[in-house]
Simulated scan of single mutants.
Amino acid sequence: MIENLSPEQCWELLQNNNDAVLVDVRTKMEHTFIGHPPGAVLIPWKEAPDWQLNPNFAAEVEAAVPNKEAPILLLCRSGQRSLDAAKLLEQLGYKRLINILEGFEGPLDQDKHRGNLGGWRFRGLPWEQS
């Protein structure tokens, strides 16, 4: 089963469960230049310029998180790529998959800007840039 938790709930889980792993499924450019939570493991779901599914995604997650009982928190820009990634990992036998609602940047506002209505950064949680 895939859980959907708020950014705040995910941050609390990461603080209280040493087995929990936050996997950032955004692109390398998003992770580096827009920012990411401290300790996030970058494993892109899709990558520019062709935006094809990362053929190594499953193998990279299995290498980073060999324990299929460990909670895996999945983060993308707004919550869609992370949900798609969670569905794949569920098929691979991972037991505790958590989609981070709102993602890192949140939904678009009326001016088509992100970061003003929700998301990890908007919620004031720790983040950094590379």
Rank of each mutant, 00 (worst) to 15 (best):
H36R: 13
H36P: 00
P37K: 09
P37W: 01
P37I: 07
P37T: 10
P37D: 02
A40G: 07
A40E: 02
L42W: 03
L42K: 11
L42E: 01
I43T: 10
I43M: 10
P44Y: 04
P44T: 09
W45L: 03
K46R: 14
K46F: 01
K46Q: 10
A48N: 06
D50G: 02
W51R: 15
Q52W: 00
Q52F: 02
Q52R: 15
Q52E: 11
L53M: 12
L53G: 04
L53Y: 06
L53F: 07
N54W: 01
N54G: 07
N56M: 05
F57P: 00
F57Q: 01
E60V: 04
E60T: 07
V61P: 00
E62K: 15
A63H: 04
A64D: 00
A64F: 03
A64Q: 05
A64P: 00
A64C: 05
V65S: 05
P66I: 02
P66D: 02
N67E: 08
N67K: 14
K68F: 01
K68L: 03
E69A: 14
E69G: 02
A70R: 11
A70C: 02
I72C: 06
I72Q: 07
I72D: 01
L73K: 14
L74N: 09
L74W: 08
L74D: 06
L75Q: 05
C76F: 05
C76L: 09
C76D: 12
S78F: 03
S78A: 15
R81A: 09
R81C: 08
R81M: 11
R81L: 08
R81G: 07
S82A: 14
S82L: 11
S82Y: 08
L83C: 03
L83K: 10
L83G: 03
L83E: 09
D84F: 12
A85C: 09
A85E: 04
K87M: 11
L88Q: 13
L88I: 15
L89S: 12
L89K: 14
E90R: 15
Q91D: 07
Q91E: 14
L92K: 15
G93H: 11
Y94E: 10
Y94H: 13
Y94V: 12
K95D: 00
K95Q: 15
R96Y: 06
R96T: 15
L97F: 10
L97Y: 08
I98Q: 10
I98M: 12
N99S: 14
I100T: 07
I100N: 02
I100A: 08
I100V: 15
I100S: 04
L101S: 13
L101R: 15
L101E: 13
L101K: 15
E102Y: 06
E102F: 05
E102C: 05
E102M: 11
G103D: 03
G103A: 11
G103S: 09
G103R: 07
F104Q: 06
E105I: 09
E105M: 13
E105G: 09
G106F: 06
G106V: 10
G106L: 09
P107F: 02
L108F: 14
D109G: 05
D109I: 06
D109K: 13
D109F: 05
Q110M: 12
D111E: 13
K112P: 00
K112M: 14
K112H: 12
K112I: 03
H113S: 08
H113K: 15
H113P: 00
H113C: 11
G115M: 03
N116G: 01
N116R: 13
N116W: 01
G118W: 01
G118Y: 02
G118A: 08
G119C: 04
W120L: 13
R121L: 03
F122R: 11
F122G: 01
F122W: 11
